[in-house]
């Protein structure tokens, strides 16, 4: 249609204030970063999908990743959304809609959507999709691509750096390590963060973690 206008490449939102690693148990105030900011942000400026937003190649791009191969088989039945535990309690998270946007080529909308980070990776959708779309993996692919654009929620950034520092995803306080031994458990095996850092450099993972601040 329109001769390709330069697509708004970095339409990335400033890092949103995803909460810091609130572990599931702490009694901190609830974080609900995703509460319909999507729609606020879109507001009237996206009342209709504009010509420049279509990227017909996006679906092929996703299909080329492991886990994305069957994306194009989706016939929009809604099974994924309807039994998604998150969708049942969220105003905005809809796996089918993310798939639909990808099939339409709305790359920027998909990649900058906050809801992307709400999938619990429970794989219910993947197991139930009648067309063998690996929905949860497709969402993971979206996330991986969003990360390349510099979008990483704080929590994942923290888990990532913890791993590189300690070998595991959490910093365990000294006190608790001592307590382990009091309860008769053997000491926690040593880890080898050096090796991990090496690998992280090699693959560019380190850069991804640091890249966005």
């Amino acid at each position: 249609m329109s001769e390709s206008k330069p697509r708004q490449k970095e339409k990335v939102e400033p890092e949103r204030e995803f909460t810091k690693a609130t572990s599931t148990s702490s009694e901190e105030p609830l974080s609900d970063m995703t509460k319909d900011k999507t729609s606020e942000r879109r507001g009237s400026e996206t009342a209709s999908i504009k010509a420049h937003e279509f990227d017909p190649h996006f679906k092929h791009e996703i299909s080329n990743f492991h886990g994305g191969e069957k994306l194009k088989q989706c016939f929009q039945c809604g099974t994924c959304t309807s039994d998604c535990p998150i969708a049942r309690f969220s105003d905005s998270y809809r796996p089918r809609s993310l798939i639909r946007m990808a099939l339409l080529g709305l790359k920027d909308r998909v990649l900058s959507s906050d809801t992307l980070w709400l999938c619990a990776a429970c794989f219910t959708c993947t197991d139930r999709c009648p067309q063998d779309v690996e929905v949860a993996s497709v969402i993971r692919i979206f996330r991986n691509i969003a990360v390349k654009r510099g979008v990483i929620p704080q929590i994942f950034k923290e888990l990532g750096s913890n791993i590189l520092e300690n070998g595991i995803a959490y910093k365990i306080p000294e006190l608790r390590l001592k307590k382990r031994e009091q309860t008769g458990l053997p000491p926690l095996p040593k880890r080898n963060p050096k090796a991990l850092e090496k690998l992280a450099k090699e693959t560019g993972f380190l850069k991804k973690l640091k890249g966005s601040g």
């Binding site: 039945c77 809604g78 959304t81 309807s82 998604c84 969708a87 809809r94 139930r128």
Partner: peptide, 28 residues
């Protein structure tokens, strides 16, 4: 317009709840 994904029985009444997405509204 949506594929039913799950039927759940309420044991006392033997009534049923169907889970699906109304895809035209994007609403489970």
């Amino acid at each position: 317009r949506g594929r039913a994904s799950h039927v759940i029985e309420t044991p006392e009444t033997k009534n049923l709840v169907i889970r699906a997405e109304d895809t035209t509204l994007s609403q489970p």
